[in-house]
Write a protein that binds this DNA or RNA. Structure first.
Lengths: 167, 167
DNA sequence: CGTTTGGTTCGGTTTGTTCCGAACTAATTA
DNA sequence: TAATTAGTTCGGAACAAACCGAACCAAACG
């Protein structure tokens, strides 16, 4: 029974790991560490645990744990009379992630505006036949979409910051 | 004057290039090729053009051009009595991109459901103190967000497929 | 036929990433 | 003081990605 749950957990660690590896641009083991910490929850995970469970060397775990702390993705708590560190995810990770999405979208929005303005100059300057001109409607529509998506993710953010929970 | 526009174009090629490099997981030169093709528009771009303008070797351009065609990102047209290929972006690139976003979101949604269900099992099985239990509200809220975003991007897709334009 | 044009293919270099092992440190325990 | 625990640091192995040059090929031209 416990064995089954453990298998399920490790399968999820791998799956979530692959996702985080791409989404957060992390090395494979770093992503698995983060997954494992997320799926272990508030009781926390130790250095040792991860060395044995994730089958990685101490140096690898050490490096990636420090990296994840630098990125503010994880924090640790301690217990009196116990030298180990118990790692848990930073509770504002979700808000961090939302902020990143909003920032990325803002940048894409800027890029669309720049490209649109460039295409407009070309359309005016070079007197090409109508057929060869750039079509600009797409940029407007895409910007509208970005604005909508940004609004709705920002709504989610306020919802979350009011509740204050961890993943 | 023409020199200025050209500078502006190349600056945009680099900027859009960096964006596409990340968004589409392309090699640096591949992303610049795609950018250049996008910003050149319907008159098309040739192999030669790119070798000289992007300052890359023939082999690099050749490989990446073929790769971009395999990915269905670009197509070419020809002119009678002219052996060159004129590359332009595939007009359904935008729809392709939207489909990818929808697919990715669907996968993330699945993942949230799986994680939530795992956390529920743990909450039930291990009789921990209430404080240590997983909080699941976040997953519900995030799924709601994904559903909203998916709906609005699908709306954009229908808007686009009805109009039928290229970037 | 020889040459040019437009492009492909292959082998190799450079560069970067990811992980490991071994040696080390600093605090604690026996 | 010696040994253990908990972790860090450094050098390097192994692998992958990205690009280049040179040799090559096939169609068209002179």
């Amino acid at each position: 029974m416990k064995d089954n749950i453990c298998k399920e957990k490790m399968a999820l660690v791998e799956k979530l790991g692959v996702h985080l590896e791409n989404r957060e641009q992390l090395a494979p083991v770093a992503a698995r560490i983060l997954s494992y910490i997320i799926l272990t929850g508030k009781s926390g995970t130790t250095f040792e645990d991860m060395v044995t469970i994730l089958c990685a060397s101490k140096s690898t775990i050490s490096t990636h744990l420090n990296h994840l702390q630098d990125l503010n993705k994880i924090v640790y708590f301690t217990k009196t009379g116990d030298r180990k560190k118990y790692f848990v995810i930073n509770k504002d990770t979700v808000v961090q992630h939302i902020n990143k999405m909003v920032k990325d979208w803002r940048e894409v929005r800027e890029l669309h505006l720049e490209i649109k303005s460039y295409k407009e100059t070309i359309n005016e300057h070079k007197i090409k036949n109508e057929e060869e001109k750039f079509d600009l409607n797409f940029h407007n529509d895409y910007i509208k979409f970005i604005d909508g998506a940004t609004a709705s993710i920002e709504e989610l953010r306020t919802k979350i910051t009011n509740k204050q929970f961890s993943i």
